[in-house]
Nucleic acid binder design. Structure first.
Lengths: 246, 246
DNA sequence: CGTCACCTTGAAATTAGTCAATGGACGTGG
DNA sequence: CCACGTCCATTGACTAATTTCAAGGTGACG
């Protein structure tokens, strides 16, 4: 029975200092989903809310009529086992939907937790569904989103099933950089990196202790560097080689 | 670098003794997707083909205008790493689509391999898409399928990330039984089990050798029994307990 | 100044992987 | 019918990867 996940237990939902609605959805940082809406000239007036780090944004099984998008900050989908083990299913960056299929689902089968302070918007499923069945082209783009989400899950499956600790962590970092790059959040191979090692551990299926060792190794080999929450990649080719990306 | 996967390398696509088309899609064994079509009074005249065990049915990246359903036999989605490691992403039983998102995709990001002799049908994506955007209710059912597929991937993510060898294998067996039960293919807690240990290994992210040990253990503890390709569960509660299902 | 949450490190214990040899089942050709 | 080859499963001995346990150390913060 490995990996008790220590103290990172949920603190219950907490829609803290909620904020205003009414803004348009077209913000560059909204990434893929924002772009989708923009391309199709769609605009919603979503409800917005803010959640503090480490709190639940969504509780598994909770019935909801809304589809949520992260506007700002990092969050994650997480599954819990009965004995306390946790698995982070994916990290959510600005522009990511809590779930691509969510417009068609009553509830989701995982929790969503804030990693940093998170601002997110909720859009009515009924509206969304209406527009989707109206415009076949929109539906196509949307299904692309679903497919991307599924493929991402499969990518991670390969990680956990076949790769060693080093490879997993190298890939986690590399893939994060790619995703942040698309959002213009990477400068000079460095970017904000708010993950605690316990969270990395839960994401890659390792122990926090082991994550610490591997991270030290990557640091001491001069591959990466972390300073006050900023991760900088010092040797991209070597990191890629470790990650098995040719 | 763990887990070279031995000799189970692909033998190239092979649409062997192909057969006739023209039958209606409404067969009980078609499971979820068949039911979907039936409920919505849809019928296609899909092309049918047969593939021998161990052969590729679909090669990653291959452009296709068709969505395929397994009609008979077992298949699997598999991903390959450059160094030969393999990960079985999911097992496909009769009624399963190669990919739920496939009607909207040009190509898929994994291989599909036959495990037993497989008969499958291919349906034109354009037809399917047309019907889907015609009938919102149908779209809903369809999205349910997508969601189920994604959730399944997440379930397996939890397995590989958090569970020990015993648990993974116990769950593999249990979940297979559930799926086969829905298709009426389980009698008296026993069902056909065509998986080689190498395939189990690739599915649960372990070595064939270790799979052998764990299977022996399950057998010697009187939990399961395998005879000439038939697996029988002898102690369901205990197997469930190992699998962490309460 | 104490607490808390997090990271680091060492040593020992476990789990799973590797290597290598053996044996059974099955099919094929002589 | 037998010899041979192939594919799988099994087992033992050994090694490697990762976890567990435990003890310190740091920095933020009230």
């Amino acid at each position: 029975m490995p990996r008790s996940t220590g103290t990172a237990v949920a603190r219950g939902p907490d829609l803290a200092p909620q904020t205003t609605g009414g803004l348009s959805v077209h913000e560059s940082s909204w990434g893929r989903f924002g772009k989708l809406l923009h391309q199709h000239q769609l605009s919603f007036t979503p409800v917005r809310q803010t959640v503090r780090p480490r709190r639940n944004i969504y509780v598994r099984g909770e019935v909801s009529e809304h589809t949520c998008v992260v506007c700002e900050g990092w969050a994650c989908r997480v599954a819990r086992l009965l004995d306390g083990r946790r698995q982070i299913l994916s990290l959510l960056l600005p522009g990511d939907l809590f779930s691509a299929m969510s417009p068609f689902q009553q509830s989701l089968d995982f929790y969503v937790e804030a990693i940093t302070e998170v601002r997110y918007a909720a859009i009515k499923n009924s509206e969304l569904r209406a527009k989707l069945s109206d415009a076949p082209v929109l539906l196509d783009s949307f299904m692309e989103l679903c497919a991307a989400e599924a493929n991402d899950a499969y990518q991670r499956l390969i990680d956990l099933g076949q790769r060693l600790a080093e490879e997993r962590i190298a890939l986690l970092i590399l893939q994060l950089m790619e995703r942040l790059e698309r959002r213009g959040l990477v400068h000079d191979q460095s970017f904000e990196f708010p993950l605690r090692q316990l969270q990395i551990a839960d994401a890659v299926g390792l122990t926090p202790v082991h994550v610490s060792r591997v991270m030290s190794l990557l640091r001491n080999s001069g591959l990466i560097e972390i300073q006050s929450g900023i991760l900088r990649i010092l040797d991209l080719p070597k990191l890629r080689r470790i990650g098995g990306q040719r």
